[in-house]
Design a protein around this nucleic acid. Structure first.
Lengths: 194, 194
DNA sequence: CGGCGCCAATAATGTAGGTTAAGGGGTAGG
DNA sequence: CCTACCCCTTAACCTACATTATTGGCGCCG
């Protein structure tokens, strides 16, 4: 179990006493995921916030033709989750699985709600987290609406230089919103600035 | 000036004392906007959170071919803003203007930061606001990646039944991500369930 | 060694949606 | 009543990307 990464992540935005830290850690569960195993599937209710400590996860939806559309990758140090299902506590439509053997920390909603009461600083931490994620999704929506595929690809390379090296093209294609075939064709035509 | 709507909006998520309410109200500025006038333009820094009390605003980007892509409409009772610019306090790329004569309340970042210190319940309020907005953007991104235009249109109708009545088709097209011509063609072909 | 399955890449064809341009119907202003 | 403008519609053509089929490389197993 690796708590250092999480505490580091939190310390960027709020200060915690030792007591608060210990209380937080007492609420966490650790979970190992083998490559290709699921953390959640369509229809599940999101009962916990998820923080990745090692490996690589992805969150995606599957459309009615069976195609995957990736909303987010989560390397170590990232949070991931179907937030709509978490908020409403209703079944959600998203899938989360591991692209590599991974390890995550789970913070259950009921525990997080207690945590908010006892350590209000966490309200701020998760507010900031949500605001940042919101900014990211706003930007990505703009990109999807207004940029051609090659620009979306280049943006992805710029934002996630470490991911582009370890991901198969197929996964990148499912993120930027094109077919693997088209991405291949596009890259062979444009040597790009990479 | 209309504060009732704002207080109502806040009361859905947190409870405030009379004192807190008065403090909040003391921080607000009211602003009137004529139809077609701008609340912000590309390059501006977002200095305040914006709550709409009357009228109708829209937030959009303009791509390099000059086309508008609408990220959000904001009827009365909604918040709106370029959150990336707000967080980073750097110039942003989005435009916000009024589709009708409107009135908004402004809460400046410096005041909001004070408010967080003095009334921590607002951390919770804006956390919940950001989480809900995040869920909305996540869903919209899924829709844009995985649904054809007609389904995106029907989702829009289902989510914003009051807007569909008062918006010109052109604006709806810029929201769901098609040309006005294509939307028109699509609607004449599919009588839809509306 | 030879066959099989799985991926990544290529090639040929199909289609959703964009572009351009022209026209018509409502309505506000003179 | 005329004109002007806005908004919507229609239709022909075009382009970006999808779909399907095919190919070649590579590890696995007999």
């Amino acid at each position: 179990m690796e708590y250092g990464l999480l505490l580091q992540n939190i310390a960027k935005h709020i200060q915690l006493s030792e007591e608060d830290k210990n209380y937080l850690l007492s609420l966490l569960q650790s979970k190992k995921l083998r490559r290709k195993s699921f953390l959640r599937q369509e229809g599940d209710i999101t009962k916990a916030a998820v923080f990745v400590t090692s490996g690589l996860l992805r969150m995606y939806s599957i459309d009615k033709n069976g195609f995957e559309h990736i909303l987010q990758f989560a390397p170590p140090g990232w949070w991931i989750g179907d937030i709509k299902s978490y908020i409403t506590q209703q079944p959600g439509s998203l899938y989360i699985d591991a692209l590599e053997d991974s390890e995550v920390l789970l913070l259950e909603k009921k525990h997080l709600d207690n945590l908010y009461e006892k350590v209000p600083a966490f309200e701020r931490f998760f507010r900031i987290l949500a605001e940042n994620a919101l900014a990211t999704y706003q930007q990505r929506l703009i990109d999807n609406l207004s940029l051609p595929a090659i620009d979306r690809y280049n943006n992805f390379c710029r934002l996630y230089p470490s991911l582009i090296e370890c991901l198969p093209q197929k996964q990148v294609a499912a993120y930027i919103g094109v077919t693997p075939e088209f991405l291949s064709k596009m890259l062979s035509q444009a040597p790009s600035s990479k």
